[in-house]
Design a protein around this nucleic acid. Structure first.
Lengths: 205, 205
DNA sequence: CATAGATTGTGAATTATTTCACAATCTTAT
DNA sequence: ATAAGATTGTGAAATAATTCACAATCTATG
């Protein structure tokens, strides 16, 4: 039952979670895989396959209990637990993410923000006091940070990522368009905004 | 030869492009699929398969001509052409994207930014004068905008996306965590930042 | 100009993901 | 209590994406 779970399944769990949350507020107690699938615009069998990774949850013939399902997903995804993250690079994007409400809603807390520019370090930015990147190791250890959001300029990306690895960060959400070369121990997820925009516009001709 | 091109291939083309650009600056004239693949950390066969969608480009036995390959990709992806886009929702994220350098580098130009808040409309934000969302249709027509970046709050997302469709926008890069329900004529690409962060941290335990 | 070594382009094989289809079993109605 | 209808969980089938493997053919060298 607990074999390898595809990333796509994890991503969809979160979509389900949001709809279940909404359904609960509406007072809906029960839902079928078909209804949930329709909301997300996927096939019902996909919903059932995704959920099947986590054991028997619905009754055959009956649907799923909305509350139980939401709680299961919350547990699997650690929603409700506060997860501290840090942001490195307080440019436009980093600053925006430092106060991004969508992170809070899922239990992420920006616990530290870093930059190396003299005009930023020590100053208040979006509710956070910007720390010097030199303090990375110290702060990561102190606050037991496992996940970092990398929003430095591309030129500084590889160098900064090495500092993050040395600071014992376990995962990096990389917003730079640079392929980071690090050991296998550190998990990287790339978000390349320009690439997304290009890929979108490619199919619009 | 010109059959359906997977989105993943398009995304990788851009990665290749960036490395080719770099190689050209270095003065490298020729490259093999293996070397290019190593830079991107994928298999060489993947590179060749991706490129094969666009005809014969390399010589068997020889590698690829860096300049020719870069130009081919630039042409396929319309890099060099200016593509005007607009941003709807001048919150933190929208403002950051309005001055995001990564877009410029690929020929995207933010030609208009919109919001509906009185304290923003008419004001200068990141080098753009914020327009009233009511003017969407007019401005989209005037500037022939085909692609919009949606960064409004989730609550306003569906409503705003309908306005975008009515304004005859062809594609939306959707940063809200809301599933937009529009006709098939409009292409949507979703970037769910919180989901990305959650998916990343799921695999870090 | 012939041979050795390198590297492409592409069908075939493999792997991953999605969808189908149906037995199992729950709910509801009579 | 039983039958009719709904809906799950899951192997099997289908589809999509990646990787293999090799004939074709280029370059370089003697």
């Amino acid at each position: 039952m607990k074999k390898h779970i595809p990333e796509k399944t994890v991503a969809r769990l979160l979509l389900y979670y949001r709809y279940l949350y909404f359904l609960l507020q509406q007072g809906t107690k029960n839902i079928s895989s078909k209804s949930l699938a329709d909301m997300v615009e996927i096939k019902d069998s996909q919903v059932r396959k995704d959920l099947s990774y986590f054991g028997k949850l619905g009754g055959q013939g009956a649907g799923y209990d909305v509350l139980a399902l939401r709680d299961m997903i919350a547990k699997v995804l650690d929603i409700g637990q506060i997860t501290n993250v840090c942001i490195i690079g307080m440019g436009g994007l980093g600053s925006a993410l430092a106060s991004y409400k969508g992170f809070e809603a899922l239990g992420f807390k920006v616990a530290a923000v870093f930059d190396n520019a003299a005009n930023k370090v020590g100053h208040r930015l979006r509710g956070h006091t910007c720390l010097d990147s030199k303090e990375l190791s110290k702060v990561v250890a102190e606050k037991d940070l496992k996940v970092a959001i990398l929003t430095v300029p591309g030129e500084a990306a590889q160098k900064t990522s090495i500092a993050l690895e040395q600071a014992r960060v376990k995962a990096i959400l990389n917003f730079t368009p640079v392929k980071l070369s690090l050991s296998k121990n550190i998990k990287i997820r790339n978000i390349d905004l320009a690439m997304e925009l290009k890929t979108l516009s490619f199919f619009v001709k």
